[in-house]
């Protein structure tokens, strides 16, 4: 393969790897937004906690890596359920401004809790994969990258199927589209809220746990993740699952190719530029809420 094609292929591979992660995180955010009408500024903290708990289980408690990942997600989900039950359930009728402030407060609280528990150092989750990179015609990746891509892609598909095909998924979408008629067919809205919040947190925590193998996690990571997730959700359309998936992949690829072929100082600007463009021409985002 010629050198330019190899480099292009490497950028594309990088973009898909990061894009899958963006998509997974954004799916959770869009679900919480769509069902509960909450702009969850603490979403990135679930990612951060997923990473830290996985690190704690593997590194400090010596748990098997593949057992630690689902367990970490389960622990974060349990925390999310407690938070939803004790805070957000009471805010069902509250205006968006109130819930937004509450999530901002929660994000600060969770970040500082992580700081107290684990300190400010970045931590990488030790993985059982060989660290030696794999090369396919000069395009490099590692077993861990491939594992991340496989897990995030699989979770996106599973999430999508759960939402499209299962009874609960359908109930969620109905709640999303018209709460009153959902309640009238017997869907318990507060349960749907709890499911949506837990499910959204689970997706973010799963992303944090798998990516934590090569992107060190620290207490402040959450803020950056939240920002990226919002970019994706605004790009894809607030409350749209397909939008979150397509938007996540698009942002990942745009950042990779943009940084690859433009001055790298502009990398972050690319995502925001894309959002401004979309908002100018399609204020509702690329996809409608589904």
């Amino acid at each position: 393969m010629s050198a330019t094609i190899t480099i292009l292929a490497q950028h594309l591979l990088n973009g898909v790897l990061i894009g899958c992660a963006y998509a997974l995180i954004a799916m959770g955010l869009t679900m919480i937004f769509g069902v509960m009408n909450i702009a969850n500024f603490a979403h990135g903290e679930f990612y951060m906690l997923g990473g830290f708990v996985a690190f704690y289980l593997v590194s400090l408690m010596g748990l098997d890596y593949f057992a630690a990942l689902p367990l970490a997600v389960a622990i974060v989900v349990a925390l999310a359920i407690v938070l939803q039950h004790s805070i957000f359930r009471r805010l069902r009728e509250a205006p968006m401004m109130t819930t937004t402030l509450v999530t901002i407060g929660l994000s600060i609280l969770l970040e500082n809790a992580a700081l107290l528990l684990w300190g400010p150092q970045p931590q990488s989750i030790p993985t059982p994969f060989p660290t030696k990179p794999l090369s396919f015609f000069g395009v490099y990746t590692t077993p861990l990258y491939l594992f991340c891509m496989a897990v995030t892609a699989a979770l996106i598909v599973v999430g999508h199927v759960l939402i499209r095909r299962t009874r609960m998924g359908k109930a969620m979408r109905a709640t999303f589209q018209n709460k009153e008629s959902a309640a009238l067919v017997g869907i318990r809205i507060d349960r749907i809220y709890a499911y949506a919040f837990a499910f959204g947190a689970a997706l973010a925590a799963a992303a944090g746990a798998v990516l934590g193998g090569f992107i060190p996690v620290e207490p402040a990571t959450g803020g950056i993740i939240t920002l990226k997730a919002f970019v994706v959700v605004i790009l894809g359309g607030m409350g749209s699952f397909v939008g979150a998936i397509v938007g996540g992949l698009l942002l990942g690829l745009a950042e990779a190719l943009g940084a690859g072929y433009m001055p790298t100082g502009w990398k972050d600007a690319i995502g925001f530029f894309a959002v401004i463009l979309v908002l100018l021409f399609r204020p509702e985002g690329l996809f409608k809420r589904v």
Partner: peptide
């Protein structure tokens, strides 16, 4: 090449430097 204070991963920049 540069990266930002907020960057968590540097794959694009590294690929570019490698090129």
């Amino acid at each position: 090449e540069f990266f930002q204070q907020s960057d968590l991963q540097f794959l694009s920049q590294i690929t570019k430097v490698k090129a």
